[in-house]
Design a protein around this nucleic acid. Sequence first.
RNA 1: GGGAGCGUAGCUCAGUUGGCAGAGCACCGCGCUGUGGCCGCGGCGGUCGCGGGUUCAAGUCCCGUCGCUCCUCCCA
Length: 423
Amino acid sequence: MKVESVRGMRDILPEEAPLWQKLEAEIRAAFSLYGYGEIRVPLVERVELFSRGVGEETDIVEKQMYVFPDRKGLPLALRPEATASVVRAYVEHGLHATGDLAKLYYLGPMFRYEKPQLGRQRQFHQYGVEAIGSLDPALDAEVMDVAAYLMEKLGLDRKKLTLRLNTIGCREDRGPYREALRRHFLPQRADLCPDCQRRLEENPLRILDCKQPQCRSAIATAPKSLDHVCEACREHFTQVQEFVQALGIRYTLDSTLVRGLDYYTRTVFELCAEDLGAQDALLGGGRYDDLVGLLGGPPTPAVGFAGGMERLVLVLSGQGAPPGAAEPALDLYLVPIGGDAKRAGAKLLASLRRHGISADTDYMGRSLRKAMQVAGRSARYAAILGQDELARGEIKLKNLASGEEKAVGLSQFATDPALFLSG
RNA sequence: GGGAGCGUAGCUCAGUUGGCAGAGCACCGCGCUGUGGCCGCGGCGGUCGCGGGUUCAAGUCCCGUCGCUCCUCCCA
């Protein structure tokens, strides 16, 4: 019976893996440069971490979370995002007790039960940073700058990126603003799409980022959060914009940007790319000043963002030369002829590798001609070892680019291979 | 969640009004017995996504199902 992969779960094959490795390396380098340290949190958490942290009424928790009981009946979830886990770890290990700002980054698989399509899998990969412990508006700007810097390093065309920015105020502002939105939308209730009619009761903020044409006119005239936030939040947002401008980051104010997770407060932002069709959001984030307290820690402000790696891979593979087509991966490919040579060759290979020479040989019983063919496309040098060479204590090295061939002493080659392999 | 398209060899794809399952690439062998890239000849490789149905006969038509892709929704 053929067993196939689970829907929405995909393999990253060796052909594609180098692109992912490059992406991961760039992400780590960028975050390190900005002073963030890696944190690795579990893929599995208690369900209530997300239902409480991310929000009971969010799409993620309501219909996208992988939930299952363990053998003792404890309700567990595969993490749909990482911020809640990072904050849990922050609280659980008393990181707040250092009195310092915690600058953390992560990288890894997340799980959401969704309809899979290009750039959106059920197991997908996110990277992100969390700066926990400061309300400084300069920090909001730094988080946006590290995101912008990463995109630059990845070679994304700045002109094709749009940073959308908004403030949704603090917890105290939320109630009055919701009421203002309800008052605005209620008279037009019948004109709204079914989803938004429901949102009017549960979470009127979410109506703002509805894309249905029928809701558009009502949204256009809706009260803006900026006009309904308190003086402190307004001042914070003003300063955030001053820092963002000072950093030279292009952005547009978007009063309809509200984000899908309940934990956001004040600053929210999203970076979108053109040419990515319906899945154009590259990363999103903002402040979550209440989450640490909500999860049992002391009141602690925080800001961060998360981005999807699948979409970056799409963008990266669409630009520049496809990887894997160019350089031979190996320094040397050994072609032994006969049983004695094979044994001597095995010993030689082990020695070469211990000298840092990447080397391989044939295990498929290929003919000499076929083995040379494999050598020609996978290595810089072919090493031919047969009875003749063995009898003389030599090995033939062939430079596969130039075709030049020379015999060298076998034992000398084994002890100091670099001497004979130029370039 | 709603709508549409596509599943044929490892890969990219042909397959006519229903009538013997095909090509290119890759792989293996030979020409060239111990020397790669080029060329030529030959070979291996298929439950035609899966399950039903119609028919003398189904890759082809019908129904279901699974998967992928696109639009929409949501988002990363």
